[in-house]
């Protein structure tokens, strides 16, 4: 029995149960909400958030108040770069992926160097970088059109590819497997937990702390860039600040997945469930027929309620 109780307390289990409950609630409120096509649509939207949250998750795991507020800016920038590099032609997809990943890695590298070499707190560094990215977006948008998604990319994101599921969902599953393997079976993964839970001890044990932390920010930029490309495929064309909606939700998905914002504890599997949970919740709110004001109030209140299940701080003890 106690083992069952232990399992029931695990964030992943809590998240999965909540997802099922939310889907049931959605089906009750508007029949057809939990139909297979709807669930697939929700999965696509969740994958976009989940891919951004993958990078966010790694940065947070690495500790020292790790957080990346610039992900939204990278998503927007990547969407517009991809749109222009492919400009509606399948032949440009490879170049677009290369260009976007390089861009994301570049800004991630700048964040990482600021955090490690200059020892700027991640929140401050990535907040400043967000301002730079937003300015860069304005410059780019003045000079060139927003660009269009290649048909191949749109197909990858929205049309069934294998077993009836679109390519982006398989990509998300692949990222999930890759990170699960990375975090639990490789030296690199162990080192992430090590620097996240006790940086001093990790350094003394010979872990190259700075290099690993920089790599986490680079990966965060890369994942945000990949999400930006997929987002372009989802919506067909990019618009200003399309990525902004991912900044704080990516952090919430990580928290709902049971990863501690203090670092060193958690994993990506839970975050995937967290991203799905947030998406289902948003989906329910858009289907029920109420004002935008009521929708936002319910959303905010529900988020608070759900947070009570997760990551509450320790009570003070003398």
């Amino acid at each position: 029995m106690s083992m069952l109780a232990e399992i029931a307390k695990r964030p992943l289990v809590v998240a999965l149960v909540l997802i099922v409950l939310l889907l049931a609630a959605g089906e009750l409120l508007s029949p057809g909400f939990a139909s297979p096509t709807q669930i697939m649509r929700l999965l696509i939207v969740a994958a976009l958030l989940g891919i951004v949250a993958a990078g966010q998750n790694l940065v947070i795991l690495g500790g020292r108040e790790g957080i990346d507020l610039s992900v939204g800016g990278v998503v927007s920038l990547s969407a517009i770069i991809a749109g222009n590099l492919m400009n509606g032609a399948d032949s440009g997809i490879a170049l677009a992926i290369l260009g976007c990943v390089a861009t994301g890695a570049f800004f991630g590298l700048l964040n990482g160097l600021g955090v490690t070499l200059l020892r700027i707190p991640p929140l401050v560094m990535t907040l400043g970088m967000l301002g730079v990215l937003q300015g860069l977006l304005v410059v780019i948008r003045q000079g060139i059109p927003s660009g269009r998604a290649a048909p191949g990319l749109s197909q990858f994101v929205t049309q069934p590819f294998l077993f009836g599921l679109p390519g982006i969902i398989w990509l998300w599953v692949a990222i999930g497997l890759l990170l699960a393997f990375l975090l639990s079976r490789t030296v690199y993964g162990y080192r992430i937990y090590a620097i996240g839970s006790n940086e001093q001890a990790a350094r003394m044990a010979g872990v190259p702390v700075a290099t690993i932390r920089v790599s986490l920010f680079v990966l965060s930029g890369v994942f945000a860039a990949i999400a930006g490309i997929c987002l372009l495929g989802y919506s067909g064309s990019s618009f200003a600040n399309v990525g902004e909606q991912y900044m704080l939700p990516s952090i919430i998905a990580v928290v709902f997945g049971g990863t501690s914002l203090a670092g060193g504890k958690g994993g990506y599997t839970g975050t995937m469930a967290g991203a799905m949970m947030l998406t289902v919740l948003t989906g329910i709110l858009t289907t029920i027929n109420i004002d935008e004001s009521g929708r936002q109030m319910i959303f905010g209140a529900t988020l608070l309620l759900l947070m009570l299940f997760y990551g509450r701080g320790q009570a003070m003890r003398a």
Partner: peptide, 16 residues
């Protein structure tokens, strides 16, 4: 609750 995410949630509520 963790301040960053909790006050983000209240900000959504206040905006509503």
């Amino acid at each position: 609750l963790q301040a960053i995410v909790a006050t983000f949630a209240t900000s959504i509520f206040f905006t509503g």
